[in-house]
């Protein structure tokens, strides 16, 4: 049974449909990324999963329970949540903050040092949050989400506004949780960095689910070309451009696009030419590009 199950879920705020008839599930141990523009409905969706707002239509089930039911409090102990933007109280220390949330969750407060260690905050655990940098606050938020080793982790924009080093730290923790078998629902803008970590992507646009699948599937469905870049002596470049139809040339390299699924054919053709080549580079479209293409398509369909 899926850890999260959404069946024709719709949420209206007045006249606007924040979430429009969405179906999908997140299997145990799966890491699903929720991507979309600001206002695409990601946060609303997360709120419904957490039982903070009731869907206008449809049904949400989390760990087999209705999140709006009073009995859901038992399930909440097994859910870790990092809100998109949280300003912890400045006059409390990091340890007091985690202690508070651990007690609410009924989790042990002995393991807090361990959590601080994991997010690299142990040395500042007893400092006031007022002295924390933005990255430290975000990592504290993440530590808060990890209290009590949750079975389901929901992260809303976990890396927004972080420097690359802190991001890597956050991704490392997500990886660890994933290997430990935690189900993860993550919403993010920083798509390129997520590529290797997620099992499936759900792309939202204006409240609608426009695509759902693995990154490879999405790439193929959308038919985005890969890019091939070849460095070679001038002689070979001439042959290359003639053969592949005069593509873009920049400082001693030829660059051309290759249709989805046609990489091997092109490589074979290249080898058959039997000309001296210096280097070859192949770039698949990033999740970012796939996402842009998907939402662009949706918008065009709308208009």
């Amino acid at each position: 049974m899926n850890n999260i199950e959404l069946i024709s879920v719709t949420k209206d705020y007045g006249r606007t449909k924040a979430v429009d008839n969405i179906d999908f599930g997140v299997a145990p141990g799966e890491c699903l990324a929720l991507v979309g523009h600001n206002g695409a409905g990601k946060s609303t969706l997360i709120k419904m999963v957490l039982g903070l707002t009731r869907p206008t239509k449809g049904r949400v089930t989390v760990m087999g329970h209705d999140p709006m039911a009073t009995s859901f409090n038992r399930v909440r102990k097994t859910i870790g949540f990092l809100p998109e933007q949280v300003l912890f109280q400045n006059n409390m220390t990091g340890r007091e903050t985690l202690d508070f949330y651990a007690r609410l969750k009924g989790a042990s407060v002995d393991g807090l040092d361990d959590l601080f260690c994991r997010v690299d905050l142990l040395s500042s655990a007893d400092d006031r949050i007022a002295t924390y940098s933005k990255g430290m606050r975000q990592r504290l938020g993440l530590a808060q989400a990890l209290i009590g080793s949750p079975e389901l982790l929901i992260l809303d924009e976990p890396t927004s506004g972080l420097d690359p080093a802190s991001r890597q730290n956050v991704y490392g923790i997500i990886n660890d949780m994933k290997s430990a078998g935690t189900t993860i629902l993550i919403s993010s803008h920083a798509l390129t960095e997520l590529d290797s970590r997620i099992d499936r992507v759900a792309v939202l646009s204006r409240g609608k689910l426009v695509a759902l699948g693995t990154i490879a599937e999405l790439r193929q469905n959308i038919g985005l070309p890969s890019e091939i870049k070849i460095q070679a002596p001038a002689e070979s470049l001439k042959i290359l451009t003639r053969h592949f139809g005069g593509k873009c040339l920049i400082n001693g390299a030829a660059r051309f696009s290759c249709p989805a699924g046609g990489k091997i054919a092109i490589l074979k053709e290249l080898m058959d030419l039997n000309i001296p080549l210096a280097d070859i580079e192949m770039n698949d479209p990033s999740l970012e590009q796939v996402f842009l293409a998907l939402t662009h398509k949706e918008r065009q369909a709308d208009e």
């Binding site: 039982g51 903070l52 409090n73 859910i79 809100p83 609410l104 969750k105 808060q144």
Partner: peptide
């Protein structure tokens, strides 16, 4: 929001 996702 965070508080209410806890068992309270």
């Amino acid at each position: 929001t965070l508080l209410l996702t806890h068992p309270v």
